[in-house]
Every structure is written in structure tokens, then in C-alpha cells.
Design a protein around this nucleic acid. Structure first.
Length: 417
RNA sequence: GUGGGUGUAGCUCAAUCGGUUAGAGCGCUGGACUGUGGCUCCAGAGGUUGCGGGUUCAAUUCCCGUCACUCACCCCA
């Protein structure tokens, strides 16, 4: 009988969990600076929420949903992404009545039934934000800046910002038609995947990696020639805003995000040290989603970053922060009498806020000293029969190698020094 | 869902053409130092060689199956 973590999931052990916490804390700080409040939504939702919002033709919905029927006959899915649940919560709790502009952030596990590979898991973790209630392009810019600011804070350097406008509900269909018209005559020359995309999701044709398809698409119509005046104006304002701050970006007309709800601004941040899954963060504007989910006619903008991929990127840059929390003291009580008589000091020191270690394995003094060293303890506090007689403790400074003896009554103050 | 690669100690890896008791480094435990860490030296614990079958006098090694991991496609964080 042998149990393993389910495929595509893994255990985060203390050394790694410390790094996770650190990155999460930096994200919380970034979100706080920008005025975003935390929201925690359930791990699962009515499956229809995702089908309606993400789009039934997307891969996420058609083959990656972790869905099931619960004992009450409800069709449920573990959340594959964060925006739809936040929008649902926004509507359900009438947040537009509380504040005309709602700014939220979340840190949450997500679930997709994919084949795992480098940087891709069935349970993964996203850090994201949503800003709902304004269609100001400067809000798009704020969300992008928050993402960039956060990535800088964790120390990532080799990132690329890709930017595109995926147009709106009015002008995108015109472009899709133009694209299909253009490809209609060479339909048979497209790769198998692209022939499927041609009917299911024509925009996805744009980022096909097949050389033959790429060649065909060389002269394909560009979305920039088809987007409507307001969309063009919106995109220009986002770009000008980023320009004014000297933020480097690449306009990538082939960048099409895999969720149907995006309109206008779409962006992605990539890192080249990750293998095939190079995207570490992505997001965009959604102008129809909230209304389609039954809410008010409000627009939103958001992004999410993948925590596992951030860690891979940090590893690739060899700047993974070492998170070793040093220990204040290792309390070594030698013999039964000392163990009983020093217990109160162990807990007094801990109550005073110090990290104090103690042996429960019956190890020798030498072994305890070695343990103290491994834990990077500042002091070893030794209390044996000799010390008990004198009412003292021997305190060795493990960095200096020096040792002094202090009265037990002064022990806490000495270590707090 | 499709394809490739890899499964040996807690971790990273050896093991000649198929050959006898499967090794090393790191880590862990103990000792050298009867109450003092790091450095050094010595010793010890730790293995169903993923699992099942086949070929063979003999399988960690070759073959088949299976499971797991991994990388890639698709797609995305």
C-alpha cells in the first residue's frame, strides 16, 4: 500500500514553503500599495460559471476542468482560474454599491486537468488582482504596473512584457471574418490543429508554431487594421501611459489569450528560463463579462501570476531568496534534574518572543551542540548539575565561540539583550 | 488525449560484455573529545535496484507489460 500525491500535485515542504510565504508577502505588499483588498472565494463553483465566462470552446472548459457532480446532484468545478469567481462574488455581494471602483486581490490554488510538465501542474497557485468599475485605460496601466512592480520586488529581471489589443465585441467579429476569408483559400494547407482552430477559435491560428502556418499568416490581415476607433484610442492611451514611464513592452499582434472574455487590452509577461511554459503572468480587460454573468454593466481589468512559475524563473536567474530563519537559542538541559528545573525558562524565553530549540531525542551534549550549529542558533544555553548548584546557565555564543555564565534569574533579559 | 526520455539508499549518482556480498558523495546517528558546535578522521544505520512476467546456469544490466516520474505537443499560470 503506497500513497503518492495525486498526479500533477506536490507537497511544499518547510524550506520551500518559506519561500512561498515570502513571495506571497511581497505580493500582499504590492497589492496594498496599489489599494487592492484581499478576497477569498471558494475552491469550487457551479460549473456553469466557468463555461459561461471562460467560453465553451476554450481548452480550459472543453478539456481541463476538474468537474464533478456532488451528492446533491450539483455540477461543480474546482476553479481553473480566478477572475470568474471574483466577478461572481462581486455581483453576489453587490460590491458596486459599496464603492464605484472595486479593487481586489487574491492568492489561491487553481485546478486544471492537464498533463503535467515543466511549470504546469494540476493544482497550481495564482496571485492575481481584479479592478472592476472603470474603463479608463489608465486603470489597465495600473494593473500592468502592479504586475511589473511585484515582479521587480521579488527580484526577477529577465522578463518581457507583451501587449496586444484583442478588440471588442463590435470590431473583433469583423476581424475574425477577415482572417477566415483570407485563409479560406489555403485552408487545406493549414496544419491539422489549425484546421480545427479555423472553426473553433480562429484567433488562435495566429500563434501557431507550425512553419507552414506561420508562412501563410505572414500576409494575413492584422487586427490593428480592423479595430474600431474607441478600441484604437484605448490601446493608444495604454501604450502612451507605459511609454511615459519608460516601461518597455512589445506589441505582439499574435498574442491571443485563451479565455474568451478578454476585450481590448491583453498582456502577458514571459520569462525565458522556464522551458516551454514561458508565461509567468497574464491578464487583460473584460468589458462584457460582468454583465454576461448577470451583474451590472461594468468593465474590469485584471491579471494573474503563477506562483510555481515565478519560483522556476527565480531559480533560473539563480536569485532564489534563501529563507533561513535563524534560531535565537538552543537550550541544553543535562540530566533529569536539569530538564525539570529549566522547563520554566524554556517557555519564558519563548513567551518573550525568542525562537528557542530543545532536545527531545535524548541526545548527547555534543549532538545537541551540533544541532544548535546546524540550526544557526545564536546561543547555546547549557544547564547541567554544576550550573544548577550555582543557579546559573552557561551561555555560549556560537558565532564568537565565547562562553559566559549568567544567573538564571537574568537569563531572559540577557538573551533579549 | 498524443509522442520521447528516465526509474538503484532520504538526496545526487556509480556498478565493465549479463557474473558471485549492489557502491560512492552529501545528509543522518555514534565515537575520537567521560560537559561543548563548525574542520578532520573512524564507525554505523539506511536497498523488494518502481512493480509483474519472460529469456538465461546467472538480470540493476536484455525483452515484454504495467505504474510512476519527467520533457514536449495541445493549451496555459
Amino acid at each position: 500500500m503506497k500513497y503518492r500525491a495525486p498526479k500533477g500535485t506536490r507537497d511544499i515542504l518547510p524550506a520551500e514553503a518559506a519561500v512561498w510565504s515570502h513571495i506571497e508577502a511581497l505580493f500582499r505588499h504590492a497589492a496594498a500599495r496599489y489599494g487592492y483588498g484581499e478576497i477569498r472565494t471558494p475552491a469550487f463553483e457551479d460549473v456553469q460559471l466557468f463555461i459561461r465566462s471562460i467560453g465553451s470552446d476554450t481548452d480550459i472548459v472543453s478539456k481541463e476542468m476538474y468537474d464533478f457532480v456532488d451528492k446533491g446532484g450539483r455540477r461543480i468545478s474546482l476553479k481553473p482560474e480566478g477572475t470568474a469567481p471574483v466577478v461572481r462574488a462581486f455581483i453576489q455581494n453587490n460590491l458596486q454599491a459599496v464603492n464605484p471602483l472595486t479593487k481586489l486581490f487574491y492568492i489561491s490554488p487553481m485546478f486544471r486537468y492537464d498533463r503535467p510538465q515543466a511549470g504546469r501542474y494540476r493544482q497550481f497557485h495564482q496571485l492575481g488582482v481584479e479592478a472592476i468599475g472603470s474603463d479608463d485605460p489608465l486603470l489597465d496601466m495600473e494593473v500592468i504596473m502592479l504586475a511589473i512592480s511585484f515582479l521587480r520586488a521579488i527580484g526577477l529581471k529577465h522578463t518581457t512584457l507583451l501587449l496586444n489589443s484583442v478588440a471588442c465585441g463590435n470590431c473583433r467579429p469583423r476581424y475574425v471574418e477577415a482572417l477566415k476569408d483570407f485563409l479560406a483559400k489555403s485552408h487545406d494547407d493549414l496544419c491539422e490543429d489549425c484546421r480545427r482552430r479555423y472553426t473553433d477559435n480562429p484567433l488562435r491560428l495566429l500563434d501557431c508554431k507550425n512553419p507552414a502556418c506561420k508562412a501563410l499568416l505572414q500576409k494575413s490581415p492584422q487586427i490593428s487594421a480592423y479595430i474600431c476607433g474607441p478600441c484604437r484610442e484605448h490601446f493608444d492611451k495604454v501604450r502612451k501611459g507605459l511609454d511615459s514611464l519608460g516601461i518597455a513592452y512589445t506589441v505582439d499582434p499574435s498574442m491571443v489569450r485563451g479565455l474568451d472574455y478578454y476585450t481590448r487590452t491583453a498582456f502577458e509577461i514571459t520569462h525565458d528560463g522556464l522551458g516551454a511554459q514561458s508565461s509567468i503572468a497574464g491578464g487583460g480587460r473584460y468589458d462584457r463579462l460582468i454583465k454576461e454573468c448577470g451583474g451590472p454593466d461594468l468593465t474590469g481589468m485584471g491579471f494573474a501570476a503563477g506562483l510555481e512559475r515565478l519560483l522556476l524563473a527565480l531559480e533560473a536567474e539563480a536569485t532564489m531568496p534563501a529563507r533561513r530563519i535563524p534560531c535565537s537559542a538552543y537550550l541544553i538541559a543535562l540530566g533529569e534534574r536539569a530538564r525539570i528545573n529549566t522547563l520554566s525558562y524554556l517557555y519564558k524565553l519563548r513567551d518573550a518572543g525568542l525562537h528557542v530549540e530543545y532536545d527531545y531525542l535524548g541526545r548527547s551534549l555534543k549532538a545537541q551542540m551540533r544541532a544548535a550549529d546546524r540550526l544557526s542558533c545564536r546561543f547555546a544555553v547549557i544547564i547541567g548539575d554544576d550550573e544548577l548548584e550555582r543557579g546559573t546557565a552557561s551561555i555560549k555564543d556560537l558565532a564568537q565561540g565565547s562562553q559566559t555564565e549568567v544567573q538564571l534569574t537574568a537569563l531572559v533579559d540577557y538573551l533579549l539583550q
